[in-house]
Computed example of a mutant assay.
Amino acid sequence: MRVPSFGVTLKSLVIAVAALSASSVFADEVQVAVAANFTAPIQAIAKDFEKDTGHKLVASFGATGQFYTQIKNGAPFEVFLAADDTTPAKLESENEIVKGSRFTYAIGTLALWSAKEGYVDDKGEVLKKNEYQHLSIANPKAAPYGLAATQVLDKLNLTEATRGKIVEGQSIAQAYQFVQTGNAELGFVALSQVYKDSKLTSGSAWIIPANLHEPIKQDAVILNKGKDSAAAKALIEYLKGPKAAAVIKSYGYQL
């Protein structure tokens, strides 16, 4: 009787185990501070990033200004995806980042949004009519999208008219929540919060023309705590690649 040979199978098994062990050794986890407007895109990117590189992305979401304070106070973030370019530039001037790591990963778009369908027209006349009770914006001192919102109001000569109606969120996520829950009839949000694949996901919106505010250039950096992290370097490179670019564009950002 012929004894079956298990040589090939055993060899394959040994190779597979070795490969798995190697990937476990080189796989890493990266702690990322992410501007609130980029929540949905980074969650989508994180899945592909882990699948393609083996590294795991652990994200914390909030306002850019708040993250700056946390980073200066020693927060354990290795990568920072800001909602502007000035905060990362400031961190760079203060020697808080890995030299040469800073780049613009997205250019944001601001939108005037209401959870009610048909409430906001496509030219923003609802804002000028001033018939609403509450207008939600993010804190302009902490959130770049909030600063952009104040620039729009100033450009349209509506700063004084809206002063008593503004409901301020600490981040763009909170500004969005105020509108979503009906605490404000409309508000300035990041387009990415209400947009996917070339269409609104809910409600009604006016996409703010870019000439009404300064460009919202969003920069990414590797912080000093991530200087020896393979996962941090891999994430920055991944954000520059075609897969991430496709996701970023699908949420209404420019590259």
Rank of each mutant, 00 (worst) to 15 (best):
K141F: 01
A40Q: 15
D122H: 09
A161S: 11
A82S: 11
A27N: 07
I71L: 05
L110P: 06
K225D: 05
Q174V: 13
T181H: 13
G7F: 12
K128W: 09
S171H: 11
V152W: 06
G241A: 14
P209L: 03
G7E: 15
A142F: 15
V221T: 09
R102K: 13
I172L: 04
A22I: 13
K155Y: 10
A83N: 10
V120I: 14
L91N: 04
N224T: 08
I97M: 04
I107F: 07
H134W: 12
N95D: 13
Y195N: 04
T39A: 03
L13N: 09
P76H: 09
A148H: 10
A138K: 13
A111R: 08
D219T: 03
E96C: 02
E168A: 07
D85K: 15
P140M: 01
D228K: 14
Q218H: 11
N73M: 01
I15W: 15
A244Q: 08
Y176S: 00
V25S: 02
D154E: 15
R163V: 05
D121R: 09
L200Q: 04
P4E: 12
G252E: 11
F26Y: 12
A142C: 03
K47I: 06
A138I: 03
K196G: 00
V221W: 08
T162Y: 10
V14T: 08
V179A: 00
I222A: 13
P76A: 08
Y176D: 01
E185W: 06
A230F: 04
V120R: 12
L112E: 04
F67G: 00
E29L: 04
A115P: 03
L110Y: 09
A115N: 14
P41V: 01
K227V: 00
S5L: 12
Y132Q: 06
L135A: 00
Q151S: 03
N157D: 14
A18W: 12
V126F: 13
V179H: 07
K233W: 01
L191Q: 13
E168S: 13
I172N: 11
Q66D: 14
E94R: 02
L239P: 02
P88T: 01
E117K: 15
Q193K: 09
G62K: 06
H134T: 04
N95S: 11
D122I: 02
L81K: 10
H213S: 02
S23V: 12
G7L: 14
V189H: 08
I137Q: 14
S229D: 05
Y251V: 01
S23T: 11
P209Y: 05
P144T: 02
R2V: 01
H213I: 02
A142M: 15
F38G: 00
A19V: 12
N37I: 09
Y68W: 11
I172A: 12
D85R: 14
K217L: 07
T86F: 09
